[in-house]
Structure formats: C-alpha cells, structure tokens
C-alpha cells in the first residue's frame, strides 16, 4: 500500500493498494520511475485505508479467492481493472484456468485498456477516480 501524489496534479493524492498478479504491475512502478507519480512522505501511511485498489495482471481461478479476500477487506476502495487480463482475460481469454474478467465478481470503477497499459494510462485512471470522488 502506498500513497501517491499525481505529479501534474499536486493537489491530488491517492492511497493505492496494488494487487500485482502479473507483468502489468511493472507499469505502476514505471509511473513512479517516470516521475508521473510521487510517493508521498512516509508517516501516516498505515493508518489510511486505500481509496483505490488496483487489480493488475492475470487473475486465475485458483488465485481468485485470495483476490476477492483482498477486495472484501477494503469495501470502500474503488476497484481499478488494470490491463486486458484483469478486464477480460486478455491474451489468455481461451485458457481454462484464467478468470475472464474480475468484474464478474466485483464492481469495477475504472477499466484501463492495454497489454500492458502505459504508465500515463495508470495516472489518468487515478485522476479520473479522484475527480469523480471530488464531484460526487
């Protein structure tokens, strides 16, 4: 779990928990390396529950219970389906052990297309969630 500030929107800070299941997760780190996200100062990190839960990578039927367990633990977090695998199974759409979309089991707030999506897409998705949160 980490708190990030969006580099281009400094007023916007999000608490992100990434369920990194496959290669898509690297793009989240790439967003930090590229300076698109700035990790907020250490301190009160553990006390704040995540506002965004990112499911990035291939969800398999075997792993699904653990993923749902994490989702259930943070009922207030908005779910981001990051990349083709989490959204629809992606390249593994025909593989029997792969779950064809996490949205079959839990409501997804934002879908990010890509295989993998670019770091900019991750930031744009965070921003759209943050802005939706402000307006509602």
């Amino acid at each position: 779990m980490a708190r990030y500030q969006l580099a281009e929107h400094p007023h916007c800070e999000v608490e992100v928990l990434t369920a990194g299941l496959a290669c898509c997760t690297l793009e989240v780190e790439a967003a930090v390396t590229a300076g698109l996200l700035i990790p907020a100062q250490l301190g009160n990190q553990a006390s704040t529950p995540p506002s965004v839960l990112v499911i990035s990578g291939t969800v398999t039927d075997a792993l699904l219970p653990s993923v749902l367990d994490v989702i259930d633990r943070y009922p207030d977090a908005q779910l981001m389906s990051f990349g083709a695998c989490a959204t629809s199974g992606g390249p593994y759409w025909d593989s029997p052990p792969v779950t064809k979309g996490i949205d079959q089991f839990s409501d997804v707030a934002v879908y990010v297309a890509g295989c993998p999506p670019r770091p900019e897409a991750f930031v744009a998705a965070l921003l759209s969630l943050a802005q939706a949160g402000i307006s509602s």
Partner: peptide
C-alpha cells in the same frame, strides 16, 4: 480494447494499410 493485446498482427496482415499504429492518450473507461 478490453481484450486487445496490442500484438499488431492486424496491422501487419492488412494488405491495404488500413490499420496503423498510432500514439494515443490513455484508453480508460468506467
């Protein structure tokens, strides 16, 4: 695009260059 794996096979096989790679902003949706 929720399924596309960006392999580019469609771009390669098109005999009339009707599909092409493009720069694009983030493709996100609720």
């Amino acid at each position: 695009y929720s399924l596309c794996m960006y392999c580019g096979i469609c771009v390669d096989v098109c005999p009339f260059d009707a599909l092409e790679w493009d720069q694009h902003r983030a493709l996100i949706s609720d």
